[in-house]
Design a protein around this nucleic acid. Structure first.
Lengths: 348, 348
DNA sequence: CTGTTAGCGCTTTCAC
DNA sequence: GTGAAAGCGCTAACAG
């Protein structure tokens, strides 16, 4: 690393394109061409410039490029929170895919505040980022569409509500995943299968509910509202909801929890009532978060390809940014059912 | 939201400072002053400008500001991976603290590739971000110091090696945390306390080892190399290392795992050998990741204030960026010992 | 208090 | 193939 000249504030003066141009004996336009991999430069000139660039450790100033070229190389990601594994898995996939294209994520946790999210979005989109990934956005369809009409490029990951056709989105195959989970329980002989759902009205909840009901129907079973309780996708909620489910008169022999958090909560509720899993109660989750395989017993669950959802969203966004049109604006990624130790054949 | 004019490419033309200035009947300098909250504007002018800004939905173009003012409002965060809870917790704290100052994180997962990290850093620092947070960086002391000499502003979170005095860093009080954990086991009557350490040479490992040995020494116990095995901070590693520890001739009655992953691995190893926890074996972890309270039995562990470490790093960085000098360049955040169900008095 | 002006570093026509 | 030059939108002196 060579020592840079220092500005009068003691901070180093960074190498600029001009300096490279002078050193290489060419114009800045040529340097720009080389740096951006344009074809119309002679091999000789190119190599010469590249050498100087390497020697001086030049890298383009992204602000300048952003201002001049109108693209920043940044993609905004609005996400309710970064910490929960659910979100960080998506983030992880997106970051990976983006860095392959030398683009970078600008992270915007919204903390579930709608207003903040909207204004974030507006600020993100204006000369700050080239586009955005909106994870579980709280915007209404109208707001999203208005954004679209303003020329904003974005794709939604895991929409909260049914989205307008025109809004690009990627999500998991919630309905078929849930269906598969319940069929598994049915195949094990369970007939009384309770459910702990997510918040009513959320798309993921309703789709999973659809799969659950459909599977029951296929076995000729009517859903019993008494053993279908709504919760909030949190562990605490699962403990509470699981408790309610286990305290009904005719107790279910199996519980389909609409996510892993709820499942682990239900496990705790069962345990505190002296029920053994899976001997006395089978439990299936949804997500397959990392720890699902490390709880005891290991959780049978529906794996959502979270990182892959992030990656897929990036790929849609990239095409959007390149002004490529494409057919499927709504992408549903297949889930995978994973059998572990928390389910077993219903006892006689 | 008002409809913006459309450029010839169909994409909307964004509102610029010039447009606001014209509409408000002032100069762009005045608009800039208002937008940046400078004091030297009359109340009347200010309100007028603010009204127009609001009406037109104007937001500054960050690229332009970055280029002109030399600050971007972005802080780079290099981090080995975003997904593991350990990292996302830190990230979460940093993002929170940063967004309070209307700054944003540019996320740079390094995937443990040193070269990539270095070049990332160089690019980050050049007109892209105002500074950086380096989580568990693989740079050598020399590289870090060279960066410092180049005027780069950054703070290290959880250094891998002992850092030069001049490099700002924040970490947890590893030594005292470990000490407390082992004292707890000693107080429960354990005398034969094994350890699963992290990779040898890592600062966190060595500091925790120091605390472990010191606690043993205070009870007049010599560390026994036979029951101190190194591992990699992963669950799989914990299973393997735990197994080795439990297969030695004179088995330990307690294990201090240097992080929660290792602890949960050790639990599995114990369980697969028919040992009950905590009846036959006490286990203590380090970190207190979210699931530590949800495994069975719930894990006794040393809580690292991860989010707080992120927040503290931001606060150091902010002062750095404001050219404020400060005393303590190395900050150690206190840990908290949390007793749960995985430890109990040694059985007679 | 407010306006004028000179760039920040780069990309991109448009000539040559 | 290469260079000259015109900005991109904004901030920060510097005048007034």
């Amino acid at each position: 690393m060579s020592e840079p000249a220092n500005g009068n504030d003691g901070r180093p003066t960074r190498v600029t394109i001009r300096e490279i141009a002078e050193l290489a004996g060419v114009s800045i336009a040529t340097v720009s061409r080389v740096v951006n991999g344009r074809g119309d430069v002679s091999a000789e000139t190119r190599e010469n410039v590249q050498r100087v660039v390497r020697e001086r450790g030049y890298t383009v100033n992204r602000s300048a490029r952003g201002l001049s070229a109108g693209r920043t190389g940044f993609v905004g990601v609005t996400i309710p929170k970064v910490h929960p594994v659910y979100f960080s898995s998506i983030l992880s996939g997106a970051a990976e895919a983006l860095s392959e294209q030398d683009m970078r994520i600008v992270l915007c946790p919204t903390e579930h505040e709608h207003d903040r999210e909207v204004s974030l979005l507006e600020r993100l989109m204006h000369g700050t980022t080239d586009g955005a990934l909106l994870v579980l956005p709280e915007e209404t369809n109208d707001e999203l569409e208005s954004l679209l009409n303003h020329g904003y490029r974005f794709v939604v990951i895991d929409p909260l509500k049914q989205l307008n056709e025109r809004v690009p989105a990627v999500s998991a195959a919630n309905s078929s995943g849930a269906n598969q989970a319940v069929r598994h329980l049915l195949a094990l002989g369970h007939r009384r299968i309770g459910a702990i759902t997510g918040p009513n009205g959320w798309l993921a909840t309703e789709e999973r509910r659809g799969g659950y009901h459909a599977a029951l129907a296929s076995a000729g079973i009517m859903p019993d509202p008494a053993i279908e309780v709504a919760s909030d996708f949190q562990i605490e909620g699962g403990i509470e909801a699981g408790g309610r489910l286990l305290d009904v008169a005719e107790r279910p022999t199996a519980i389909f929890a609409f996510n892993d958090n709820l499942a682990i909560g239900a496990m705790q509720a069962a345990r505190s009532r002296g029920l053994r899993i899976p001997e006395d109660l089978s439990i299936v989750g949804f997500d397959d978060l990392e720890w699902a395989q490390h709880v005891t017993p290991a959780l049978t669950t529906v794996r959502q390809p979270l990182a892959e959802m992030g990656r897929m969203a990036v790929s849609l966004l990239t095409r959007l940014l390149d002004n490529q049109s494409f057919e499927a604006l709504h992408v549903e990624l297949a889930t995978r059912f994973i059998v572990r130790g928390s389910t077993q054949r219903v006892s006689a």
